[in-house]
């Protein structure tokens, strides 16, 4: 297996705020990697840095061997990186079909069409002409995933797909993941829900306050270790030391 995405010693953030400290992760082609961590651990920043929406301060991001640093966000889509953003962020002026079509704006060749997206998410079939704003949360999330697929990605970044959705809906959505990877896309999943992440991922990376606190194959990780890495227990953390001073 060759590495599709190699992030090495990546630092990034917003304005003066540093959110990531020398993060290194690797995603192999065909594997599903789950990035877990508490709120504020830097998961979303990591994804936004990979897509180019936030600048890389230092370190490198290589995709299929190519250095992405000088590639602007809209070109990274053409390279085959796409993201389902947290909060879904559908375009309210566009109806469902148009939201899907705009996902394929870059005209990158590949298997995905509106019809195929509807095959994967049959619930969208009667909704194609509707304004996206009137959909339920689960329906919107299906559109958001479908919209990302329309770019015919090699790497699809899924940010907090389960956020704010009923468990049964989340299960439905994740059930589609094998069909997605079967069409040749590698998935990087960000989740707060550890159980959900472990069930779909081959590899797991846990972030804590902008640093990698644990990584390994999901099958081999001990639940107690994950919990410790997730909440930072047993580590001497910045927050802890500050509390000591304050």
């Amino acid at each position: 297996m060759s590495p599709l995405l190699e992030v090495s010693e990546l630092s990034s953030g917003y304005g003066d705020f540093r959110a990531l400290y020398d993060i290194s992760i690797t995603v192999n082609e065909g594997e599903t990697l789950a990035v877990i961590g508490a709120n504020g651990a830097g998961k979303t920043t990591l994804l936004r840095a990979i897509t180019g929406l936030v600048p890389t301060w230092s370190g490198s991001i290589r995709f299929d061997g190519q250095n992405l640093l000088s590639v602007p966000a809209h070109r990274r889509v053409a390279e085959g990186i796409t993201m389902v953003p947290e909060g879904r962020l559908l375009f309210p002026s566009l109806n469902v079909r148009e939201n899907l079509l705009v996902g394929g704006h870059g005209r990158r060749p590949g298997p995905w069409t509106v019809e195929r997206v509807v095959e994967v998410f049959p619930l969208l079939a009667p909704l194609l002409g509707r304004p996206s704003a009137v959909l339920s949360g689960g329906e919107q999330q299906a559109v958001a995933i479908g919209r990302a697929l329309m770019a015919n990605p090699r790497l699809i970044l899924l940010d907090e797909v389960s956020l704010g959705l009923a468990p049964v809906v989340v299960r439905q959505l994740y059930a589609a993941l094998p069909q997605i990877t079967a069409h040749g896309a590698t998935a990087l999943v960000v989740e707060q829900d550890i159980g959900q992440a472990m069930s779909v991922a081959d590899q797991v990376v846990c972030l804590l306050e902008g640093r990698v606190s644990l990584e390994g194959p999901s099958a081999g990780l001990d639940r107690a270790d994950i919990t410790a890495a997730y909440f930072g227990m047993g580590h001497r953390t910045e927050a802890g030391s500050n509390e000591g001073q304050g």
Partner: peptide, 24 residues
Amino acid sequence: TRMGRAFRATADDPSTARLMGIND
């Protein structure tokens, strides 16, 4: 049109439009 769709998407949310490969 495809371009017109991109106009409207950019009007809604330029940052997410970039995620679609649109050069805002």
